[in-house]
Nucleic acid binder design. Sequence first.
DNA 1: TTACTTTCTTATCTTTAGATAACGTTTTAA
DNA 2: TTAAAACGTTATCTAAAGATAAGAAAGTAA
Lengths: 200, 200
Amino acid sequence: MDSSTALIIFRKSLEKFVEFNEAEWIVFTQYLTFSTLKKKHYFAEHGKVCDKVAFIVTGTMRYFHIKDGEEITGYFSFENELVSSYKSYLTRLPSQTYIQALEDTRLINISKNDMDLMLINPLLAYKMERFGRMVAEHYLCCYEDRVAAFITQSPEERYLQLLNTGKEVLQRMPQHYIANFLGITPVSLSRIRRRLITNR
Amino acid sequence: MDSSTALIIFRKSLEKFVEFNEAEWIVFTQYLTFSTLKKKHYFAEHGKVCDKVAFIVTGTMRYFHIKDGEEITGYFSFENELVSSYKSYLTRLPSQTYIQALEDTRLINISKNDMDLMLINPLLAYKMERFGRMVAEHYLCCYEDRVAAFITQSPEERYLQLLNTGKEVLQRMPQHYIANFLGITPVSLSRIRRRLITNR
DNA sequence: TTACTTTCTTATCTTTAGATAACGTTTTAA
DNA sequence: TTAAAACGTTATCTAAAGATAAGAAAGTAA
């Protein structure tokens, strides 16, 4: 897939947030950069400022913390979603979390500097305020659901719900990433899986 | 405290998000409504659309879900913070959560309808896009911290951190609200508290 | 290929948390 | 004021989860 196709997908995907007219889009795209992140390489690292937000054209990203020397997976971002260590990006403070490519991943990047420039560019300012608002609101809703799931659902229920997303990359992903994400140990997830198979 | 004092506090509190000039402020305040919510009364209810966001002048709000007939407390909002069932407010879909006043609470309300009107009012549109963006980004960061705490900290650590906020209303709040918030049962919290006292 | 690492499951043991009930205290409501 | 409900702690019992280790399978790299 070439860059222009990726841009079309990106634009399509943004439509649920904000629609750009042709003039705006031309200016907007001048602020974008393309990159590829090899499997296991980092998009963000603990202690370093994450100065960009990116759209995932293809691939998958994993968010994790390190606790007592262990990697604890907290979240995933998939194809056609945005990825960033958001708080770090917004505040320019060091990231708490690592973000790593789970497979070779193609990205369209917006740096914090460019975003700030767009926010004072008369041609784009209004649309970018709106863009920022819609994106933040979207992810706020995602977080609200995630927190609600943690409060009201058992790990087993959360696992079944995760499977229901039908993301096939979940099949190829190490189980312990998923276990962390669900808030349990890999051994516990293994037991849950056995229970599910037995009772099927 | 009278309404004009409350407005001054509100304006001061908004400054970290967006600053209004006098003309803008006069128009903005015309969209605001004041209300008081008696203890135990509801700001939002499961199954009903929450069509407003509010600033808490004084008081405390509790968010909870009902799971198997039990109230499970998920969050709190305190004085000088905003409160809303955000996803419901943003999407006009029924709220998943209940929000209840823990004590008599004074609010400054912005209805979804008025917010939408402000967003197309030329005098305010740009500022309100910005306002919406900053508020959403702020709460996004709060959620990020809350999810990170769930992943990387034990209930005991989260309890100690909660105490460190120094909110004196926590002293008066039923323990089981706090237990739910921490993701444990009231009995477990009671054990944690005893351990902390014993080892002190 | 071969050696090494990672991954997943399973078993055992230990620790902890949950469920439940009892009891005294406090709060609430009639 | 009085009765009822809610609250917080404690004890007991049970169920589940964590820690650890072992072993097989799969993946990775030299």
